[in-house]
Design a protein around this nucleic acid. Structure first.
Lengths: 208, 208
DNA sequence: TGCTCTTGATTGAACAATCAGTCAAGTGGA
DNA sequence: TCCACTTGACTGATTGTTCAATCAAGAGCA
């Protein structure tokens, strides 16, 4: 559990290599070179195996996944505030290079590794979905949103940002089909709110 | 360009292996074994290299990607019909095992291969997005939907199904957070339609 | 019918390169 | 001296790929 300079350097280099080339594409030799180490053998003094190094890299970056909903989002706060805050937090999170690379790593590796997929989902999108689901249910209870399946609503809302995040993080070729981020947030929140607002109630004007 | 039995068998086996283990994970030996071939060397009689075999596999499955919007979706058809049809077509498409495996292959490999990502996006999600974008713009023109950014609207609508498709195709661990497919389609179409419906000019104001 | 000759298809063996991982021999500070 | 740390050289296995040899089936000719 100790965290020396060398160990940290290796972890950092391994993260860069894994996220750029995938588990199989990144070799311990390339990781060693990226870490400024003379011999690949040194890696095996800190980590018993390549697989263990990979797991350590994952575990080192799991905590950052939980930060998306780390803010103070109350269950009773009004939807127009919570949804916009959540949307901006989502985009801001994956603007950070470390988080973006982590997302790419998950995307390429978790498919072949269901066991780590489970852990990562638990700490990342799972929390966001769980919070949003109970939040939507609560808002229906409060009469601020009309009755609907809150689970489907949560999946739908977060999913609306999936293409945008995918284009930023992993597939730049998608970018040409993507709208501006700010405009997208505005449109999405607007559609979602109007779509779930209680009918015929008091409502504010919507500007095109 | 000839398509003998052997060549087709190799392509099929390679598709299965690549989609299951990824490009690096699938070896020509395993592909040969899956194709019922004695020696891996035979593959090199039909394909000059492993990379060429991979490209051939991709090209062989590109056409099926265009089928999503292959149906007769008119620009003037009412939204409640078009959106539901589109949603069901989307889910039905990725229920087919071949399409699902193709999607997984794209997801895991296109990240490291921008050149093929571009082609695949062009034939797949790109077409869907392009159609939906012009369709939404047309509906705004017709006065059936209220003014909004049609590009963002299209991305949002298709994105709403991204988590569901991801859980089915590549990450089963996500399934426990997912709603029932039918209910999700209903909720999504409902939210999207209500969210973009033209506001009734006469609103009864109920002051709280 | 018999007999070569050609051609496409298939094979087992072997190639060089690279991989993850090991090992013995060091280094340098306490 | 001791011990945490570092190194270059090495190992055995696996990788994609090549190659010479072989097989089956005709084609042309007697």
């Amino acid at each position: 559990m100790e965290d020396t300079d060398r160990r940290r350097a290796i972890l950092e280099a391994a993260f860069a290599e894994f996220s750029a080339k995938g588990f199989r594409g990144a070799t311990i030799k390339s990781i060693a070179r990226a870490a400024g180490i003379q011999s690949p053998a040194l890696i095996y003094w800190y980590f018993p195996t390549k697989e263990a190094l990979f797991q350590a890299v994952i575990e080192a970056h799991v905590p950052v996944l939980g930060m998306v909903v780390g803010g103070k989002l109350a269950l009773d706060a009004p939807p127009e505030q919570v949804l916009e805050t959540l949307a901006h937090a989502l985009l801001a999170t994956f603007n950070q290079p470390a988080e973006a690379r982590m997302a790419r790593l998950i995307l390429t590796e978790a498919v072949q590794r269901p066991e780590i997929a489970h852990i990562l989902i638990e700490h990342g999108p799972g929390r966001g979905l769980a919070f949003l689901t109970t939040y939507l249910a609560r808002q229906v209870e409060l009469g601020r949103l009309r009755p609907h399946d809150p689970r489907a609503g949560a999946v739908a809302f977060l999913g609306m940002f999936a293409p945008l995040l995918l284009s930023r993080v992993a597939m730049p070729a998608l970018a040409e089909y993507m709208p501006d981020a700010e405009a997208h947030v505005r449109t999405v929140v607007d559609i979602f709110l109007c779509g779930l607002r209680v009918d015929d109630a008091e409502q504010e004007r919507i500007t095109p």
